[in-house]
Design a protein around this nucleic acid. Structure first.
Ligand SMILES: [Mn+2]
Ligand SMILES: [Mn+2]
Ligand SMILES: [Zn+2]
Ligand SMILES: [Zn+2]
Lengths: 138, 138
DNA sequence: TAAATTTTGCAACCTTGTTGCAAACCAATA
DNA sequence: TATTGGTTTGCAACAAGGTTGCAAAATTTA
């Protein structure tokens, strides 16, 4: 397990630091998306705010995590499970936000449906965000 | 035209003020979504920042405009065209963000496709945001 | 018109995110 | 293992975006 985490960093050609190991572990131990604020709390305020911002950005750049657009204008981050790499994300799944507990889930098995856009427009990427009540809050 | 705008405010039981008339007119004259910053520029800095924030929030509450979640974490606002009312929005259409010009469109005629969510989850609302190139930038 | 209510502008504040830079750290080499 | 060079970190300072309390101004009601 510990080994896995260092491997992910090595494969992305990132140096192994306490900070990166701890933040990556947080994502692996939580089966949901995390915000910058979540990470600040979960890490016990051990790391500087700025370092967390930079680490998250690095992970996004390297294809380790992806961002999730939310209706309330906060950025959420979650582990990439498909074959994402530096500069190329392929996180084509639906995201679910529970209105009761606030948890954001990656529905990795739910594909993005096709959308008919008008003539003249050309689509590049589609984001689908579903709000509702999750399995734990039902 | 001028009459229409005051009617909208009256129907929502809002006092008629210069501020509200001007902001509402901006939405009617622009066939695209506007951000707080857009409104500040378009209004010629005539109104206070805070007043614009409060006016937008009031319009959202009254069902006059709706917010659009964007991938770049900025809030966009657009006129509601369907029968939205205080506390009840029904803006079930797809939104399109042009990667070239940055314009956000309401695709009012493109319905939200059905999404199969897993058992245990119950959906309440679905947001679909498509990125790509718009008809003007093609 | 006058009173009651609502809206506005201002100042002050908060949250979130960014940048420059020196110190600390990590990885590679001798 | 010690040295070295490049990378990462923490700090301070800053900037954008957004909120709150309150008195003055504007609007609605009577
Ligand atoms: Mn995801
Ligand atoms: Mn819309
Ligand atoms: Zn829940
Ligand atoms: Zn365009």
């Amino acid at each position: 397990m510990e080994q896995e985490i260092t491997d992910i960093l090595k494969q992305s050609q990132l140096s192994i630091t306490d900070n990166r190991l701890k933040i990556l572990k947080l994502f692996q131990n939580n089966d949901k998306a995390l915000s910058h604020a979540d990470i600040e709390k979960l890490s016990g305020k051990h790391f500087d705010r700025v370092t967390i911002y930079r680490t998250l950005q690095t992970f996004v750049d390297k294809g380790i995590i992806h961002t999730i657009p939310t209706a309330d204008n906060s950025i959420m981050y979650a582990l990439c499970k498909e074959a994402c790499s530096e500069g190329h994300h392929h996180d084509d799944h639906v995201h679910f936000l529970c209105d009761k507990c606030g948890t954001t889930y990656c529905l990795d098995n739910v594909n993005i449906p096709a959308v008919n856009i008008p003539k003249g427009f050309s689509a590049h990427q589609t984001n689908v965000l579903v709000n509702g009540v999750c399995k734990n809050c039902k």
